[in-house]
Design a protein around this nucleic acid. Structure first.
Length: 232
DNA sequence: GCGACAG
DNA sequence: ATCTTGTCGC
């Protein structure tokens, strides 16, 4: 398996990255309802890092939304070319994630990624960026609230509270996916509404706090990283 | 100006 | 994200 490098012209510093976000943010579509919940393919994507060697492993796992069983898996190994900067995660992860997605033979359908979409300092998180580059419907499910504060949602599965930006816009939701457990933070990425994103997230988090799609992708990219860097 | 801050 | 032992619980 060859090592994925960032494509020509990919930002190499913060200033370039900010300019790219400012350009691409205008192409986000958030007025489409998105795929129907519980039907068709759903693809989870995630990455794992080896900071010592500046290597990143990406995984894309396609699930059947009706049964939450695995349909297809793909991985890619890439070189990290961008530092971790909160708000610029996409520039670290996306080249390798795109390669993993591209190697799938089946339709990804709706893509679910770790992190945010609209709920981002410049309204253009990882999920939105991935959506614009691929044209696919994408939503983001994060495990931490990032820069946004939220009211504690009710304790029941499905209860939620708004993630509100300075201008009053509801950019995401803190969603309780299992009774009494810490909520996850959902936002729309591209070609899905926030309502739809939350409905999908809840459906996918049928058995655990985190959606099955991201659990599978997380396990797979860690395994892929071990296979290339874990030994020696 | 300083710290916080998705993964 | 990742570094890491034991421990509580199903």
């Amino acid at each position: 398996m060859e090592i994925v490098e960032a494509p020509p012209g990919w930002p190499v510093n913060e200033a370039e990255a900010l300019a790219v976000q400012d350009e691409l943010r205008t192409r986000v579509v958030l007025d489409e309802p998105g795929p129907q919940v519980g039907t068709g393919p759903v693809t989870g994507v995630d990455v794992a890092y080896d900071d010592e060697r500046d290597v990143v492993a990406a995984a894309a796992v396609v699930l059947d939304a009706a049964t939450l069983t695995v349909v297809e898996e793909a991985t890619a190994i890439g070189r990290v070319t961008f530092p971790y900067v909160p708000g610029l995660l996409a520039f670290r992860e996306l080249p390798t994630v795109l390669a993993a997605l591209a190697s799938l033979t089946s339709d990804p359908g709706l893509v679910v990624c770790d992190g945010y979409g609209r709920a981002h300092p410049r309204r253009f998180g990882l999920a939105s960026h991935l959506g614009v580059l691929t044209g696919l419907p994408v939503l983001g499910v994060a495990k931490n609230p990032f820069v946004f504060t939220y009211a504690e949602p009710g304790q029941s599965r499905g209860d939620f509270a708004a993630l509100v930006a300075d201008d009053g816009e509801e950019v995401g939701r803190a969603l309780r996916t299992q009774h009494g457990v810490k909520p996850v933070f959902v936002s729309a990425g591209h070609r899905v509404t926030l309502e739809s994103a939350c409905a999908h997230a809840l459906h996918l988090a049928r058995d655990f706090r985190v959606p099955e799609s991201t659990r599978r992708a997380d396990a797979l990219c860690r395994r892929a990283l071990r296979e290339v860097s874990g030994r020696a």
